[in-house]
Design a protein around this nucleic acid. Structure first.
Lengths: 149, 149
DNA sequence: CGTACCTTTGACGTCAACGTCAAGCTCCCT
DNA sequence: AGGGAGCTTGACGTTGACGTCAAAGGTACG
C-alpha cells in the first residue's frame, strides 16, 4: 500500500509563491483544513488541490468567502437539495458577472494595445510636430471605444 | 454657442451607481479634477469620460494609482519622451498580465459552467443514488481541468 | 422666517487579506 | 550543552477603497 505524498506548510508555500501566513489564514477562514502531526500541519494532495482552486479564484477576483462556498459545494451530499438549489442560483449569477467581466477585460486589453501602438508611433517619429493633436485624437478614440463596449 | 452639459456630484454618482464620497475620493487621489462653482463641484463631459475609464479599470482589477497613470498618459505632451518610455514599459507588462488574467477568467467560466451542469444533473434525477460517487468524480474532473490550464 | 435639501470639508471607522513581530516548542547536528 | 531551522499560536499593524458621521454653508419653497 503506497502512502500519498504530503507537504509541509513552507513547502507548499514555496511551490505556489505564497507565505505560510497566507496558508494559515486560509485555514482560519475555513478554506483549508490540513491534518496535524502533533502541532505541525500536514497538507495532502487534496489540500493542495483546494489551494490551486483558491489561488485561481483569487486571480479572477473572488473574495475568499465566495471561494469557500464553491469549495464546500464539492462536499455536499444528496441530502442537501436546498443548498444545491441556492448554490445553483449563485453560480448562475456569478457566471453572468464573469461574462461581463470578460468583456471588460477584452476591452481593456484592446485599449491597452491601442495605447501601446500610439506610444510607439509617437516615439518613432523624431520630430515632435502634430503631437498634441494626435494625443487628443487618441483620447477621443479611446474613450469612444471604451464606452460602447 | 452651445454650452456643454455638466453634472453635479450626486447626479453623476446616481448615474454610475457610486457614492458622492467615492467621487471625492477619486478627486483626492488625483484621478478627477472637476471645476468649481463656488464650492460646489461641476463635472464636465471630460470628467464623466474619465470616470467611465476609472470604473472600467476598477472592474478589471486595476488599483487607482495605476488607473491614474493611464489617465495621465493622455495629458503627456511631446517634451516627456522619457515618461512615455517608462509608460510604454509598464503598459507592455500590464498587457501580459491582462492576457494571463483572461486565461484565468476563461478557465473559471468553464469550471463554473461545468459545475452548473453538474448541479443541474444531480437536481434533475429524483432518486439520489450514485450521488457521492458522482460528486467525487466531478471533483477530480474539475481539479484536473483546472490544473492543466 | 423656518426648514428641507444639497453641498462642502475634515476626521474617524471599516473590511479584506494578509504582513510582521513576539514567545515558545521540537528536532537535529556538532 | 548549545545553537539553528522550522514549526506553532497569538496579537497587533498595514494597505486600499471607500463608509460614516459631524459641523457648517448656500438655495428654494411655503
Amino acid at each position: 500500500m503506497k502512502t500519498e505524498r504530503t507537504w509541509t506548510i513552507s513547502e507548499l508555500a514555496r511551490e505556489f509563491k505564497v507565505t505560510p501566513r497566507a496558508l494559515r489564514f486560509y485555514e482560519d477562514r475555513g478554506l483549508l483544513s490540513p491534518r496535524r502531526d502533533g502541532l505541525n500541519r500536514v497538507y495532502s494532495v487534496r489540500d493542495r488541490g483546494r489551494l490551486i482552486l483558491i489561488l485561481r479564484g483569487k486571480r479572477v477576483g473572488f473574495p475568499l468567502t465566495e471561494i469557500k462556498e464553491i469549495l464546500d459545494l464539492y462536499d455536499l451530499n444528496d441530502g442537501e437539495r436546498a443548498q444545491m438549489q441556492t448554490a445553483l442560483k449563485k453560480f448562475r449569477a456569478r457566471a453572468v458577472t464573469l461574462e461581463s467581466q470578460r468583456e471588460d477585460l477584452e476591452g481593456a486589453i484592446q485599449a491597452l494595445a491601442d495605447g501601446i501602438a500610439w506610444l510607439e508611433g509617437r516615439l518613432a517619429e523624431p520630430a515632435p510636430k502634430a503631437g498634441v493633436a494626435a494625443a487628443r485624437a487618441f483620447e477621443q478614440e479611446a474613450k469612444r471605444r471604451l464606452q460602447d463596449a
